Amino acid sequence: MSVPSNRYFAVKTTVGQEKNVARLIEARLAEVLVEEVAEPSGSTAVDDSNWVIQIFESPKNVTVSTVSLYLDKEGELTAPLRIELYKIKEPPEEFTLGEEQEVDYVSLIRDAQLLTNASYDPLLLDKPGWYDIRIPTGVELRRYTVYGVMVKAPNLKQGRYMLHYTENKLYVDGRAFTTSDAGVGWREEAFNILFKVKESTDVASIIILPSVKGYVFIEGRGREAIAAAVQGIRHVKNRPLITVTLDEIAEHLVEKPLIDVLTVGQMVEIVSGPLRGLMGKIIRIDRSKREVTLELTESTYQLPISVSVDSVRILDEVKSRRT
Rank of each mutant, 00 (worst) to 15 (best):
V149A: 00
T297Q: 07
F195A: 11
Y144M: 13
F177R: 10
I283Q: 10
D47E: 07
E74A: 14
S320G: 15
K256V: 10
M150T: 01
R223I: 13
A118I: 08
Q231H: 15
R7Y: 00
P210K: 11
D72I: 01
F56H: 09
D104C: 04
I208V: 15
A182N: 04
E167Y: 01
I218R: 00
Y147F: 06
V261L: 03
E269P: 01
S107F: 03
E26Q: 07
S107G: 10
V32K: 02
Y8D: 00
Y105K: 03
P240D: 08
I305V: 05
T13F: 02
G138V: 07
I270T: 10
K256G: 02
V264N: 07
L241V: 03
H164S: 14
V236E: 03
A228Q: 15
T66P: 04
T96D: 12
K289T: 09
G98H: 11
A38F: 04
I270W: 09
L85Q: 02
Q231I: 11
P274Q: 05
T44H: 15
L33P: 08
S308Y: 07
R28D: 04
L303N: 08
E167H: 08
P40V: 09
L114F: 02
R110V: 08
S311T: 14
T263E: 15
K256W: 03
D202K: 05
R223M: 12
L303I: 12
